[in-house]
Write a protein that binds this DNA or RNA. Structure first.
Lengths: 197, 197
DNA sequence: GTCTATATAGCGATAGAC
DNA sequence: GTCTATCGCTATATAGAC
C-alpha cells in the first residue's frame, strides 16, 4: 500500500474541523497548519489564500445535508415513504461528518453570504418544493386529505429541522440518541394521523 | 428638557447594533467608539473590557424573545388562546429591536457558551414546558384530543420557530410581511384542526 | 471623561534560502 | 514543497497629559 501524503486534502480536512469548532473568522492559518503538521506559510503552496480554503470547504458543504430526493412516484407508498425519508434524515443528524458541516452552516449563516444563499436555495428553493410534490402526489392517490401541499411540507419539515437543531445543541450520549429516535417516530405518527384520509 | 449624554448607554446600544450586524468577534472597540463619537480608549472609562460589554448585551438579550407566559387557566379559551399567542409571537418577529437580538443569538449560538445555555434554558427548559401545561389544560377541558402534551407543544412551536428563522433570513418588505402573516394564520388553522375534538 | 501615544499580540500574506 | 523571517495591518488594553 502506497502512503501518499496529500497535503492539500489534509489542509481541507483540518480546516473543516476547525471551522466547525471555532468558526471561519476565528480559525487562523497557523491553527490549520499546526494540525496538518506544517508551518503556516507552507499552506500557500496549496491554496492561494484563506478565502480559497473557505470556498473549497463550502463547495461540499451541502452535498449530503438532506435526504436524497427520490422518484416522486414512490410517494404513492404513503406513510412508509415518509418513514424512509425520516430515517434517512435521522441518520444524517447523527452522522459525525454531517454534524460538523451543519455546525459550520449554523455558525456562518448570518455572516457568510454565499453559505446563507446556498442554504436558502437548498431548503426553500429546492427541498420544500420537492416535498410539496410528494404530498401533492399523495393527494392525487387519495392517501391524504386535500390541502395546500407546500404548507404540509413546511409543517412536516419544520419539526424535523427543530429536532436536528436540538441534536446539535445538546450533547449526544446514547440515551439522548434513543430519545431522539423516539421523537422522530412520534412526529411521523402525529403528522400522518393528521393528514391521512 | 435636560439633554444628558449617557455615554455608557450609548456604548451598549452601539454594541448591540454592531453585534447583530457583524457578530461579537468581528466587532472592534474602534467600531463601537466611532458610532458613539468617541475614541476607542475612552470606552474603558465606562466598561472594564470588551467582555463586560458583551455580558451587558447578553443580560437583556432574552427578556422579550418569546411571548409572555400567561395564566395557564386562560388556556381554556382553546383556539383563541393559541391565536393570541401566535399574534404576540408574530409581533416579536417583526419588531426591529427583537430581530437584532435574535440575530445576535443565532450568530453566537455555537460560539458563546452562555448565550447557548441561556437559549436552551429559555426554549427547552422553560417555554416548551409552559406550552405543555397549556395543552394539558386544554385536554382536561376536553377541547383537544388526549395525547402527549409535550409533543403537541413541540409540534406547535417548531413551525413558529421555522417561520421566525425564515423571516430573519429573508429580506423583509411589506409583501413578505403580509405573506408571513398569512402563514402564521394557516399554521394555527392546520394545527387546531388536527388536535381539536 | 476624553484625548494621544504606545504596548503587546494576533492576523493574512510574501520573500527568499534550502 | 517546506522552512525562517518579516511586512503591514488590526485587535485589545494601558499610561499619562489635559
Amino acid at each position: 500500500m502506497k502512503i501518499k501524503k496529500d497535503t492539500k486534502a489534509e489542509i481541507l480536512k483540518a480546516s473543516k474541523e476547525l471551522f466547525s469548532q471555532k468558526g471561519i473568522n476565528s480559525t487562523g492559518m497557523r491553527d490549520i497548519a499546526s494540525i496538518v503538521g506544517i508551518k503556516q506559510s507552507a499552506i500557500y503552496n496549496h491554496y492561494k489564500n484563506k478565502e480559497s480554503i473557505v470556498n473549497a470547504v463550502i463547495d461540499d458543504l451541502f452535498l449530503h445535508t438532506l435526504p436524497q430526493e427520490k422518484d416522486i412516484a414512490l410517494a404513492s407508498k404513503g406513510k412508509s415513504f415518509l418513514r424512509d425519508y425520516i430515517v434517512e434524515f435521522k441518520i444524517l443528524c447523527f452522522d459525525k461528518a454531517r454534524e460538523k458541516e451543519f455546525k459550520i452552516v449554523m455558525k456562518e449563516l448570518y455572516n457568510h453570504e454565499k453559505i446563507r444563499n446556498d442554504f436558502k436555495e437548498l431548503v426553500y428553493g429546492k427541498h420544500l418544493k420537492y416535498l410539496s410534490k410528494v404530498f401533492f402526489t399523495m393527494m392525487q392517490d387519495n392517501l391524504i386529505k386535500s390541502s395546500d401541499p407546500y404548507q404540509l411540507s413546511s409543517e412536516f419539515f419544520s419539526h424535523l429541522l427543530m429536532l436536528k437543531f436540538e441534536i446539535t445543541l445538546f450533547k449526544l450520549d446514547d440515551d439522548t440518541q434513543i430519545k431522539f429516535t423516539n421523537l422522530f417516530e412520534k412526529h411521523l405518527d402525529f403528522f400522518w394521523e393528521n393528514i391521512s384520509l
